[in-house]
Every structure is written in structure tokens, then in C-alpha cells.
Design a binder for these strands. Structure first.
Lengths: 340, 340
DNA sequence: TTGAAAGCGGTACCAC
DNA sequence: GTGGTACCGCTTTCAA
């Protein structure tokens, strides 16, 4: 069913029908209700492409997923991020489109999206220092929002989790429990979030007059193995820590083995706080005592990005507002078997 | 840059330029090379919406994500599935679009997508018995492919992992190691995949003349806690198993704790095989000895769905082919700390 | 081999 | 308040 058919059916002009459906004030109430009823009855939905052509807007937001053949890994949080955004989009009459591209052709992908007129705006993930994509998007004047930040350059609208504050919080949480020697098992510190996490940890220690001991700080690729080895080393050394901040679930799994191996009971002899965006099992009876972020905060980030972007698209005169999201601090119920 | 501008620029008609770019045979070689060069030079890309309007095809594949406010969980494998598909799409000139909808409005979502003419085909996930979505898509004659299956009804094109064979394999793997009493810790068996997994397990036992002992079979919501409790119970009973098949990583984490707690060494005193689609950390030094499926197989499934769907869209006369994907059997490197 | 012109399904500016 | 009509950017038929 298209506009022409529908208008013919109710014996009115396309113009009137279109106006009635789009809420223009000049149509009479009688006409409007009549038209709307007919539209529902015949399940008329305006053709998106025709609408887009006529209005010059696509009502589409683009996402570009860089993926080289070597690094076949997709960031696991991407699905949640997208799902959060999709929620906003469905509310505000937008849709999202996903395209995959080689790692080295990301900027081109955005340019093409723009040239083909397929999107009104885009979301950019994992920005790098002096990111060519950001430069290109600015040149194209294509509305965009960045998920994440790069240290030093914040001259773009972004949404990011407050990693610094999360780790500041988490550190203070452990200090409040009476811990004095707290280890940090972090992700690779050339990554923005890892830098911020360490900064939060160090700031909290400094705030509480505790010396920063670099022998308690470790950073590397976030793997189970790294978590295991690091925790083992820490516990075997002299003057071992009594608590640790761990930057991901996977490293925590390894670390827990090491803790268990030494006969320490989690939550009694040793405390940990984990930060992860991928805690899919939290609600399902997870037994690790404390977390600082959940998948739902990733969805929240996606939602925020979408809100900001749409706002910017629809009001280009307004300066888009960046947002920093607080991570949730969630204390587990200690229902697990390792709570002594 | 649009067609009109470009054609004006090189002093030819829109018709000729369009034909040259779209590979029509009647344009002279000279004209074609000239036009192509100009197109590249000015970065001309045809407007997708205009193209779609004119041709009646959208070159878009739709994905609908059901998500109720209660069950805010997004299936973690969805991201990978989509990424795999996106790879195919980018190769074949398609794009994908994602929409979110309430759990109870999924069928409508597909209907709207079709009514608005925004997609040439859709992918449907997690089909249920007598799924209203499948019925609707058939009525609409909108090309679709299902990811997953429902027992009993296979009258639609689908792509699914061979869960049955994976568990058959895994069981035989353990039998070959000399195990005789093998437990099954499964997902809720009203789910199609869980049924198939059990069938594979039972068939392998039967093939090898081993009695099926229902006291070794457990199925429930796949949580860490369930994994822990089940494994504890199994190991504390008399005549405990010496090996287990575990249907998800999360349950395996719980089960590993139980195994460790009893002083058993994994890979020596007790063997497990895990089946999971979410093994993001496998390549990163995971220490669980054996797996049967990886995230890459999910991407492969996405890719296959896309291939089948596009094939069907472009050749509607051909019967679309369903596909069953074999899961990878991956033997871990036994580098973990629990390999005795 | 090329070009003019009629759609595709809407929106929005006119005039009535 | 309503209707005629000229676009939006492309494809495709028809005529040259």
C-alpha cells in the first residue's frame, strides 16, 4: 500500500493524506481521523526511501566495525552497545546500519556512507590518538559521537565510562575494608581506559596517604593466564597484598585460581574488586564478590551516544554535549561457595 | 556529488553516465573509462535511497532484536553473528539494519520493516515452536533465513550449529580417554539446542554400549551456581563420574570450583569438555582443556545466513538451502596451572 | 552508442 | 482546509 493508492481509496489528494499523517496543523480534525483510520486499516507505512529522498534525511545512523583478517576478534561489548542505541533509535524513528570494513579503511568507510547519503550521522568507537576518522568526519561535517576518548584530545562529542572514578571508588572500598596493600592488575596501559583506571587507583591511595608501590602494579594483555601468573607472583612474594583490583573478568578467573591455590579464602583472607563490561552472568548467581561495571552500563552508553547524536542531527546549531558515565558499584551477595 | 552534477561535468547525459557505471554493455569502452575516471576523481557514489526507489530494491537486510524490559539480556553471541553476516554484506553490496522491539511485538516489527520497504530480506533468530514470525514472513513472501531450529518444524531455510554431533564427538572424546561414567550438565531442555546436545550424548553412549544413567544428567538455567552445585553433588555421591560435558562456559566456571574443592586435578583426575559459543578468551591463554565451539563458528553461522539469504533474494526461483554447521573441536594446549 | 523523459513514492511549495 | 505540481536522485524505456 502506498500513498497514491491510499489517497485514491479514500478519495483525497496525496497532499492531504500526507499532511494528515504527518501532523500538519492545517488539516481538519475530521479529515485527520478519517485518514488515520484508513492508514491503520490498510497498514499503510510510508516508504522510507521515498521519504528520505524527498526530505533529504535518511533517518539512519551508521556504525562501522573495523575488522582485519588477522584480528578477527570483535569487541564483545559491541552488541550491548548497539542494543542500547537501538532502543533510542526505535523510539525516535531512526534505524541503525552496520558496516564492516578492513582496519585500514575505516575512514573511507565513513566517507562512503556519507557520499551515498545513507546516514544522517555516525558513531565512532575506540578512537586513537590523532584519529584520521575524526578528522574526516569533521571535514565532511557529518554529525558523529565518539564512544571512548583519547588522552589529550577531547575536541569532539563523546560518551565514555568514568574509569578513573570507578577505580578511585573501588580502591576506597578496599581501603575502607582495612586493606593497606592493594594490587592493581590492569589492561595494557597504552589503552586510554587502562591509563585512567590506574590514575584513579593512584589518586585514591594518595588521598589516603598511602605510598604508591609500583611492585603492586601490573599491566598487560587481559588474559586468564596473565591474571593467574600475576596473582601467583604477588602472593608468593614477600609482603604480599591483601587485596587487588582486577581490570577484567577473564583476568579475575585466573587470579581466583591463584588465590585458591594458596589456600586463601576470597572475601575473608583476600578481597578483590573486578571491573568489567562483560559481566553477563552477574544476574545469574555469579560468585565473585564485587563488581564495578556491568553490561547494562554499556547499553546505557549506547543509549547516551544515540541521544546525543540525534539531538545534534536535529539541532545542528546546538553544541553537542559530551557525557561521562558513572559505572555501577555492585556488591555481590556473597552467596558463593568461597565466602568461608 | 550526484549523477546530474557529474554528468554535467563531463558533458554527457545522466543516462550514459549511469550506464557506464553500472556495466551496461552498450556504452563504448572509451566513454566507460572516461566516466569511471571522473567518478573516482570526484568520489561520486550513487545515492542509495534514490537507487533503491528507482529499482525497487533496498539492498538492506533487517535484523530484529526482541528485548523486553524484564529480560534486558541480549544474547552475547548476537554481536558475532551480526559481524559475520556484515562481512558477506559488505562484499555483496548489501547493508544491514538493526531494530529493537518488545518481545511481544516481534512479528509486527517484521511486518513494518516490509511495509516501509526498508529491507529485501530478514534474518530471524531463536525460533520457537509454531513461531508467529515465521508464519508472517511466509505470508508476506519476504525472504528470510532462520538462525536455529525448532524440533519438528523444519519447513523454512535455516542455519544451525550441529549441536548433536558436537556432543556426540565430545562424548566419544571422553570415552576414548577411558572414561566410563560421564556426566552431562546441560542447559534447560525445553531449548532446542539442549535437546540436541543430550541426544548426541546419549547416542554416543549407546553406540559404545554404555548404559544411560539418568543420575548423571542435569539440565537447568545455565548459571555458575548451577554448575557448582551440580558438580558438587555429583562428586559427593557414590560412584561419581570421572568426566563431564558442560554446556556453557559459565557453568564450567562453577563446576571447576567444585572439582578443585574436592582436590581433583583437572585433566588428570577429572576431565571436562565445554561447549560454548562465547569463548572470547580462548585465544588468550584460557586454561580449560577442551572446547567444542568458538565465537568464530558463530561468525561463520552469520556469514552463512547472509549467503543463503542473498542468494534467495537474487534468485527467488531457487529453493533456499538450509545448512548445518559443524562446531570446532579444539583441544586446549594444557598450559594451564591445573594440568598436574 | 547516446539522450530525453517517464517513473519510483514521497514532501512541500504554490494557488485556490 | 484542500489540491495541483515540481522536485529529491536514480534507473530504464523508447526514440534517435
Amino acid at each position: 500500500m502506498n500513498l497514491k493508492e491510499l489517497s485514491k481509496l479514500i478519495g483525497m489528494s496525496q497532499t492531504t493524506v500526507s499532511r494528515a499523517l504527518n501532523g500538519y496543523p492545517e488539516v481538519s480534525e475530521k479529515t485527520r481521523t478519517l485518514v488515520q483510520a484508513a492508514a491503520v486499516e490498510h497498514n499503510y507505512q510510508p516508504n522510507t526511501r521515498a521519504q528520505g529522498l524527498a526530505t533529504g534525511k535518511s533517518k539512519m545512523i551508521g556504525y562501522v566495525l573495523p575488522m582485519s583478517s588477522q584480528h578477527e576478534m570483535l569487541n564483545p561489548i559491541f552488541g550491548d552497545f548497539l542494543a542500547g542505541a537501538a532502543q533510542t533509535y526505535s523510539q525516535k524513528g531512526y534505524a541503525s546500519t552496520l558496516s564492516l570494513t578492513d582496519n585500514d579503511k575505516e575512514a573511507e568507510a565513513y566517507r562512503d556512507l556519507h557520499a551515498k547519503g545513507s546516514v544522517d550521522g555516525v558513531v565512532l568507537q575506540a578512537p586513537r590518538l590523532d584519529d584520521p576518522r575524526i578528522k574526516m568526519l569533521k571535514e565532511l561535517r557529518l554529525p558523529f559521537v565518539v564512544h571512548g576518548r583519547v588522552p589529550g584530545d577531547l575536541d569532539y562529542p563523546y560518551v565514555d565510562v568514568n574509569n578513573q572514578r570507578a577505580f578511585h571508588h573501588a580502591t576506597e572500598f578496599l581501603l575502607d575494608l582495612g586493606h593497606q596493600r592493594i594490587a592493581l592488575i590492569n589492561g595494557n596501559e597504552h589503552l586510554d581506559f587502562a591509563q585512567r583506571r590506574r590514575a584513579g587507583y593512584e589518586a585514591a591511595l594518595a588521598d589516603n596517604g598511602i605510598n604508591i608501590d609500583s611492585s603492586l602494579m601490573f599491566a598487560d594483555e587481559m588474559t586468564e593466564d596473565f591474571g593467574y601468573r600475576t596473582m601467583s607472583k604477588l602472593l608468593e612474594g614477600d609482603n604480599p597484598p591483601t587485596a587487588a583490583l582486577i581490570s577484567s573478568l577473564i583476568m579475575a578467573i585466573g587470579a581466583r585460581w591463584a588465590i585458591e591455590e594458596k589456600g586463601l579464602r576470597l572475601g575473608k583472607d583476600f578481597s578483590i574488586v573486578i571491573h568489567d563490561d562483560d559481566l553477563s552472568y552477574l544476574k545469574n548467581g555469579g560468585t565473585i564478590p564485587v563488581f564495578t561495571a556491568t553490561r547494562s552500563s554499556v547499553r546505557e552508553a549506547g543509549r547516551l551516544c544515540a541521544d546525543i547524536l540525534i539531538d545534534f542531527i536535529e539541532n545542528p546549531s546546538l553544541q553537542p554535549q559530551s557525557q561521562i558515565l558513572e559505572a555501577d558499584l555492585i556488591v555481590g551477595k556473597s552467596t558463593g561457595p568461597y565466602q568461608g
